[in-house]
Design a protein around this nucleic acid. Structure first.
Lengths: 156, 156
DNA sequence: GAACTTAAGTTACATTTGAAACCAAAATTA
DNA sequence: TAATTTTGGTTTCAAATGTAACTTAAGTTC
């Protein structure tokens, strides 16, 4: 496989950042920055979930999730309720404020999808997303970076 | 276009991070962390370039680039020479140390490509990369986030 | 060419993110 | 059920990243 493909790792990073920034621009006036809306979107999609679910689904650290969830709660987008089956964890529940903003999130994502994927025909689009699904499975199957012990770090 | 596609923005972020971490794991023993090797790789590919070239090509801020380039210089991977045509900028030149590490970078990228894209057949792979190229063009055509003035920030 | 604007790179500072240690509740083991 | 390990969440602290203001050199305009 051609080594030049390496750049596609970078490409995906740049594209995904641009994608998220694009959505965030529409939502910033409603008090949702790029760190927040993906979480709110997941919570709304699933009805409810826990913080560790969000870690899993976003690939972010649990401290990062904690802070973003704090923000969402402090600004009235969600409430936390102790999980009935496990008192360690808590259910994150979207509020009516979250529900009222939902259409704007929807519109922002739709507009961004059009902007980024509008030029692809239906077939290409589906194939692209299928391949991303495959890559996600692969990614999830890999061990987490912190669990791998290689040669010790550089001397410096 | 289906709104559920939103998750693919996240997917690309997670996949690209995993990709870069995967490469970095091989290179960390040589003193190259995830922040550094993509830059060194670009510099070597192009023979030489400036810091602002690297901003463009990686989508990173110029301060971020500055620090990574400082690191590369301090650790003997590159040298800086004043640009003969423009005394404001400087050419980044790979050293012999960088050249000696090149095969390892090559191997690390090759192994990572096999890991991530090995399951795709040649046709899918090419199509996937073509689409990423298209998305990159689209991304580059979009205005940079800091240049856009929307409604003022949230009141909080 | 003098005044004005733009661009490359740097410094100082603030924000975002993550790593490590910690607590409390649950799960596991004996 | 007592001792041990694991897990969800939190606090503390360090590292990475970005914003803004600045310096110097080019480019522009008059």
């Amino acid at each position: 496989m051609n080594i030049a493909f390496e750049s596609y790792g970078r490409y995906m990073a740049i594209i995904s950042e641009a994608y998220i920034n694009h959505v965030a621009r529409f939502l910033s006036p409603f008090g949702l920055e790029r760190y927040h809306f993906p979480l709110l979107h997941i919570i709304k999609e699933k009805g409810t979930c826990t913080q560790s679910d969000l870690c899993q689904l976003t690939g972010r650290d649990k401290v990062t999730i904690l802070r973003a969830v704090d923000y969402l709660q402090e600004h009235g987008f969600i409430e936390r309720k102790v999980h009935p089956k496990d008192r360690r964890s808590q259910l994150l529940i979207p509020t009516s404020k979250a529900k009222s903003i939902e259409p704007h999130i929807h519109d922002a994502i739709k507009a961004t999808n059009e902007e980024f994927f509008g030029a692809f025909d239906e077939d290409d689009r589906l194939r692209f997303f299928e391949m991303l699904d495959g890559l996600m499975d692969k990614t999830n199957s890999l061990p987490r970076p912190e669990l791998i012990i290689y040669a010790e770090k550089r001397s410096s």
